[in-house]
Each structure stands twice: as structure tokens, then as C-alpha cells.
Design a protein around this nucleic acid. Structure first.
Lengths: 159, 159
DNA sequence: CTGTTCTCTTGAGTAGGTCAAATCAACAGG
DNA sequence: CCTGTTGATTTGACCTACTCAAGAGAACAG
């Protein structure tokens, strides 16, 4: 731990404030959280923080490159502090849990489309959808052997 | 054109109704449209169709595998009729235009994460972000040579 | 310590949906 | 062709996640 959050904020041209440090604290402890969860957790440190302040802080952090925003389909935006390494995400269809996946290729865009249709591509965003370990167990215990009987499973794309 | 939409709907266990045919007409002509655009366009064929009916139709189509829903970050959900071939998408950061990209690998999940962290993965969703041909031209004409000076460019992930 | 400027709070407003009840239309059976 | 059943649509309320604006407050340079 060499550079403090104070330093990092100032390096990014941002003032060091209690709401910002509170939000950063939450993000350090819990990667992949949504704004409301951040607000609730941040109130443990800074009770008067408002939801709008959280949105403002997050926008400032993302805008200055200190945090990254991801938006998995069907849920609120999630925020994480792991930036600059072009990693990807695993998302559980059942419980929404998110895990990081290292990008084996490296620098963005790690993949190139076969035919870019005239686009200049600068990022390839990859989301792996599936079931986390816990939800696999839970499903087996409820008697769901193989089929996609359960509720929240979206129409799969299984060529 | 062998199987009609009537047949396809019935095969999927859905009744053949005017709102459904109107929505399908729109989707045939314009891939990657949002619900509101569909509603507006469908009124050319079926003037009394309500926004909620469009949502209902789309939910039925997606649920029965006749349509696919994609949710690019920062915009409304889009719908397309191209299903079952596990293709991916190019999205323009500037104008939101979407283009299809064939998946070179084939069956889903076309990619496998390097470490699945206990997840069982059934789909790899890939979104390529960049600038479409038109927006590249428009940017050059406005004097934006190289930098990401413009407004709607989100914080890039450039390892 | 003081002024400037950025940040936060407070409160209203928005997009993009979902949910529920009642009406209406599709279509199977006679 | 007609009718009953059941699924689809309409209507209208409601909701989440988020943005915008104005004023009060705090950070930090001098």
C-alpha cells in the first residue's frame, strides 16, 4: 500500500471528501456492487450520505478512471475498482453474483470482430452467463436435474 | 419463404394476433430496434396498439425463442429476430447503431473463461464498442483528429 | 484565516420498464 | 357457422434506477 486514496483522488484532480472515501471503502471491500448497496454500506462510515451523492461520487470516480462501471443486462449498474487491465465478467443468471475473469489476450480490444462493418473497435466487452457454484447446488436440491425449468433463465442462445 | 409467421407463432404455442404480426413486420424490416420504436412503427399497421401490448408481444416472442433481446449498456433494450446462431454485436458509442457480427467459433458458449470460478457457463456474450463509419466521418469534419474529445465517449478500458 | 471553487444535500423529474384487473379476440369443438 | 374457453390486449397504476437543478456547505490555495 504505497499510494493512499487521498493521493489517488488528488492525482485525478478530485478533492478528498468524506463521501468519496466512504464509497471507496465500500468498493475495496466489495467488488461489483450497485449504487444502492454502496449507499447503504457507506452510511456505516458517513451516515448522512445521500443517494444522489453516491451517484455523483461514482460518476466522478468513473470519469477520472478510478472506477469502472459495468451494466449486466437485467440489473442495475455495478461498480468496481479494478481498472486498466481489460478483464471480463462471469454473471450468475440465478443470483446475479459477478466474478472477474482475466483476459487471456491482454490489451483492449482483446478480440477483433471477423467483419467490423466499417466500425473502428476499441473495446471488446465479454460477459459469460451461467450458474455460480451455490446456485448449481441449490438447483439440484430442488430437483432440477438438467432442464431449464426455473424462472429467471433467459432464452438461451445455443446454436 | 416456406414457413409463415402464422405457422411459426402457432408452432411456438402462441396465438396469431394482429399486434404480434405488426411487431414481427417491424422486426423483419429493422433489426435492433427498441420497444418504443417498434410501437411507433407498428402503429402504421395497427394504429390502436398500446405500448404495453408491445412489451407483452416482445416478452412472448423472446420467451418462445422467436426473438432475442439485447441490452447494450447505457440504452434501452433492443430486439432482433436473428436467433439460434450465437452471433455478437458491434455498437457505436456515438450514435448507438448496432451491427451483427458472425461468431467465428459457432455454438454457444463460443468462448470459455480462463478460470470459471466454479460457474457453469452456457453463453458468452460479446459486445464490440467503437465508432461506426458515419460517426468517424462526422468526427473528422468537426476537427476531432485523434483524441476522445467528444461527449458521449465512456471511460475506455485500454490496458 | 479567507475567498474561491468544487462538492454535497435536497427535491423534483425522467426513461424504461413491470404488474393487475377488466375487456376483447382467437380458435377448438360442436 | 356459432359458441365457449382461454389467452391476448387494453387501460391505468406503479416502480426502479437514474438524472438535473438550485442552494448550502466543505476543501484547499493563497
Amino acid at each position: 500500500m504505497e499510494t493512499t486514496w487521498d493521493d489517488r483522488l488528488r492525482q485525478a484532480g478530485l478533492r478528498v471528501t468524506r463521501p468519496r472515501l466512504a464509497v471507496l471503502d465500500v468498493l475495496v471491500e466489495r467488488p461489483h456492487v450497485d449504487a444502492e448497496t454502496i449507499a447503504t454500506a457507506a452510511r456505516a462510515v458517513h451516515p448522512s450520505i445521500s443517494p444522489q451523492a453516491v451517484y455523483g461520487v461514482l460518476k466522478a470516480l468513473v470519469g477520472s478512471g478510478l472506477a469502472r462501471r459495468i451494466e449486466p443486462a437485467g440489473g442495475p449498474a455495478l461498480y468496481e475498482l479494478r481498472v486498466g487491465d481489460n478483464h471480463h465478467h462471469l454473471v450468475c443468471r440465478e443470483c446475479g453474483r459477478v466474478a472477474d475473469v482475466d483476459c487471456v489476450v491482454g490489451a483492449a480490444p482483446c478480440l477483433a470482430p471477423s467483419d467490423a462493418a466499417g466500425f473502428v473497435v476499441d473495446e471488446a466487452e465479454v460477459v459469460f452467463w451461467g450458474l455460480c457454484a451455490d446456485c448449481q447446488v441449490a438447483r439440484r436440491q430442488h430437483g432440477y436435474g438438467t432442464g431449464t425449468t426455473s424462472s429467471s433463465i433467459r432464452g438461451g442462445v445455443r446454436a
